[in-house]
Design a protein around this nucleic acid. Structure first.
Lengths: 244, 244
DNA sequence: CACGAATGGTCTGAGTTCAGACCAATTTAC
DNA sequence: GTAAATTGGTCTGAACTCAGACCATTCGTG
């Protein structure tokens, strides 16, 4: 028996091979993107055929998802050339009531997301700082940062914050990291809807954003990572506190 | 137009909603686990009903996957009580010939995996070091480490190395990190099959493993992370060199 | 030996997903 | 104003996946 030491591994490793049905996954991904502000209010989603191709899903399945989003009031659709599907969802304001329904499993998942975030977001920031960014990219980053500072409170600010973090992830140019940050921001967004955070922290948070941006633009990976770690730590401490 | 700055995000963010069909995903996950040594030669897989439940897949689908693994010679199955499915695959020795078929896309994916690894594995090591490990866990870690040092060359050593890294990930107790490390080790394994590495590096690698283990057992997160970063950097440099 | 328990093997009917062709509405180009 | 292009809307038959019941084989227990 060569490998009895591996006894504990299958236990930890075997995980669901995929989450749920294809159309549910589409609803979730598109809904999340809309709520995070990747597709802001009034903007158009890609055409069905393109979207289906992007998500590796048949058009029929994608359309089921679109119907769900339409029914939920997130988007509206018009036909013909120049038509398409447009975002109609106004950013929601956090409500404390949702916090009551937090199960133990979800709580555990949220805490895990905070740990994970503190690994992947600083990693993405460091990677972004390490690359030679084009002028276009540098501008995108500065723009995303400005929008956070100038966004209204509280819902638009939340979306702008998500976009800021996702923009940094995109700068890393690592598909795996981009996916990791997207998934973690989605969970974070869910948490923040259930656990409203006070305005007081926003100024602090914005100062930390500025530090991260400076480090990335200056090409200082270690500094960028450290700055993002501080930011994640502070946010996490706040959320863990409110989670009890 | 509130969010024109987000123009670049959908481009980077929209990703396939799921990889492939369920049974292909099962084949991949189980095949990977077997090749990585999570299920060593001669060990038994969990019973079909349990595996199906674990992978969130119907038994019918799981059985299709099992049939594929059986046909590929990775496992053998016997019936009746005390029967089950047993691993028959001997660890493969790397062959240089496979390297010829590396497409540009795959090459890009491999390089991404190296970047990603350098983020998630040090993160997992730090998290593991930060937790209060039970005696059982400490022993599992030491055991996994010893096995790497004592494993035969080259294929069993490769498996033991995977198990070692996966063990550290499991110690982090973060489902997201465990999945990240599993996925990255799978890609790494694929790379190492195509790009054989010389024995010379193994001694160096083992010394780095020892440093990581010491830091984790001593409860020094920063030290553990740094040590794992060095290890990832050295492995990555080697592989990038051989990839050209 | 007989029975129970655990395992893989088989079957069925319903629901999901797919690829692709085709229809309908609308705007743009000429 | 007409034609082309682009978009969403609809339909079909095949393949995949599911849940669950039931069968066959083997081992341990009494």
């Amino acid at each position: 028996m060569t490998g009895s030491a591996a006894q504990h591994l299958p236990e930890a490793l075997l995980r669901p091979v995929r989450g749920h049905h294809a159309f549910e996954a589409c609803v979730e991904q598109l809904g999340t993107a809309i709520r995070l502000g990747v597709f802001p209010l009034g903007s158009a989603l890609p055409a069905e055929r393109e979207l289906a191709a992007r998500l590796h899903v048949s058009r029929a399945t994608l359309r089921e998802a679109m119907a769900a989003l339409r029914q939920a009031g997130l988007v509206e659709t018009t036909r013909g050339r120049g038509g398409g599907t447009v975002v109609t969802l106004k950013p929601r304001t956090p409500s404390a009531r949702a916090a009551l329904r937090v199960t133990a499993v979800k709580r555990q998942d949220w805490l895990d997301a905070l740990e994970y975030r503190r690994v992947v977001e600083p990693g993405a920031a460091a990677l972004a700082a390490q690359l030679e960014l084009t002028d276009v990219r540098r501008e995108q980053l500065e723009r995303a940062h400005e929008e956070v500072a100038h966004a209204g409170r509280p819902a638009p600010h939340r979306q702008a914050d998500s976009r800021f973090h996702l923009t940094i992830a995109a700068m890393s140019e690592s598909p795996r990291l981009i996916e990791a940050v997207t998934s973690v921001q989605s969970t974070l967004h869910e948490m923040l809807l259930a656990i409203p955070v006070l305005d007081t922290n926003i100024a602090h948070s914005d100062r930390q954003h500025a530090t991260v941006v400076r480090a990335i633009l200056a090409g200082r990976p270690d500094r960028a990572r450290k700055a993002m770690e501080n930011h994640c730590d502070d946010t996490a401490a706040l959320l863990r506190g409110l989670l009890g």
